[in-house]
Simulated scan of single mutants.
Amino acid sequence: MQAVIDKLERTHNLSDDEFAALLAPISADDEKYLSQRACHVREKYYGKDVYIRGLIEFTNYCRNNCYYCGIRRDNAHAQRYRLTAEQILSCCHTGYQLGFRTFVLQGGEDAYFTDERLCQLIQEIKRRHADCAVTLSIGERSKESYQRLFAAGADRYLLRHETVDKAHYEQLHPAELSHSHRLQCLRDLKEIGYQVGCGMMVGSPGQTLNCLIKDLRLLQELQPEMVGIGPFIPQHDTPFAQEAGGTAAMTVRLLSIIRLLLPHVLLPATTALGTIDPKGREKGLLAGANVLMPNLSPTEVRKKYALYDHKICTGEEAAECVRCLAARVESTGYKIVVSRGDHITKEGLYHANQSHPNPRTDHKAI
């Protein structure tokens, strides 16, 4: 198996059979070797730095009815909320003081947040924090909408594809959602010029090894700047409430595989991974991840953004959360830094258009 891992590191590709073997049960020695090679590659390009993104969950209204999601349209038990523009800007102010240089605006597909409202918000964030990146994670929109938001100053866009296998996609989503449209949105975002993130749930109902291999092939094709993966965790008010969840072990292994497949990728150790394993985020960092996404949302709304059950850090203030994370990261031998944390191939472009110091070579540790 170590020869297969070496091949993946060298060529960034495997046959379907080799991917299947790497995704099947492997020995503890092979698991250790895989994570070591992933960390070697991650440190080659990003050193010991860990980038933090300030997550602002600004609305839990959603027009969609995905079977796995706790803020799905038909969940009558969801306590709905929307943050005001001033609340969002206050979260950014707090985050900036704590060392965040990327803000992630994440929410359901909420018709209230029109292009006009979002463009005004993005422009104001950029006016107040010109050295920061704005990432959007607000689902499927038209190409024209994505273009307007990009023109307003949005730098990155996260849109998890969840699964590239059409039959599996249709097991997870109602017929009103289109597998082909989800993939087209990702291609539109790349064409416009965003730093694009996609990703999948690990262990979602109906997922097979073949589904995961197809997901890896999509990553090869799309070459996203970011890949966000996390274990499927059931939510009690969804049709999948009684389904088995994904595992930390497979999630961590996939992080290492993705790092070797896409050496330059920005790879989060997600909150979902930390939810199912108390050391999940640390294990993710030691498997090749280099991004964390602490929550900057007001504490009074965090429990309401309940995509899945038992989510961690719902009661912590932002400063408390960052202090805790910094200690956790240091225990792995890495360090959180004050930086936009751009994809390594995009840094020169960013630096050429800014008057402030290079976001990677002139940062400091928290």
Results as ranks from 00 to 15, higher is better:
D30S: 14
H356Q: 14
Y46N: 14
R259Y: 10
P357K: 06
C91E: 07
Y146F: 15
P174K: 03
I258F: 07
E18L: 00
Y334R: 15
E282H: 00
A365W: 13
H93R: 15
I233S: 10
D155P: 00
L89D: 06
Y146P: 04
P263H: 08
H161C: 10
D49Y: 04
L267Q: 06
A130D: 09
D115S: 13
G246R: 05
C91L: 07
E176V: 04
F150G: 01
G153F: 10
T238G: 10
I336F: 01
Q184G: 02
G206F: 05
D6E: 13
T114P: 09
G288Q: 04
L286Y: 02
Y51M: 13
D309T: 02
L183I: 15
L83P: 04
R42C: 08
A85D: 11
Y169N: 08
V41N: 09
P359T: 14
T94Y: 00
P294C: 12
E162W: 07
D74T: 14
D309M: 03
T238K: 05
G333L: 08
H77Q: 14
H179K: 07
Y68K: 02
R160P: 02
L183S: 08
M250C: 06
R128A: 05
E116A: 11
A78K: 10
R10Q: 13
L136M: 11
E43G: 00
S256A: 15
F103H: 06
R217K: 15
Y157W: 13
I71D: 11
K32A: 14
K303E: 14
C321E: 09
A133V: 02
T299P: 09
A327S: 09
E162S: 08
R73M: 01
P174T: 03
A3W: 01
L325M: 12
C92M: 05
E31S: 08
G54H: 04
R160D: 10
R63F: 01
L105K: 10
S145D: 02
S137Q: 11
Y96V: 04
K48H: 14
L255N: 05
A272D: 00
I52W: 07
H310N: 14
R323F: 03
N13F: 06
D277P: 00
Y81S: 04
Q97N: 10
G107P: 01
L285D: 00
Q207E: 15
T345R: 10
C132W: 00
L23H: 11
A85G: 01
L218F: 15
T11D: 14
L22F: 03
T345Q: 13
C66R: 04
K279M: 08
A319S: 06
A130L: 06
G288L: 03
I52Q: 15
I233C: 12
Q79P: 00
L186G: 12
A78C: 13
P359D: 11
E347V: 15
S180K: 09
L307Q: 05
V252F: 01
S355V: 12
Q87G: 05
G108T: 03
R340P: 14
I192G: 09
E225P: 10
A289G: 00
I276W: 02
I229C: 14
Y51C: 07
V196Q: 12
P239R: 03
H168D: 08
T247V: 07
K44N: 03
K214A: 15
Q97G: 14
T114V: 05
V265H: 04
M226C: 12
I192E: 10
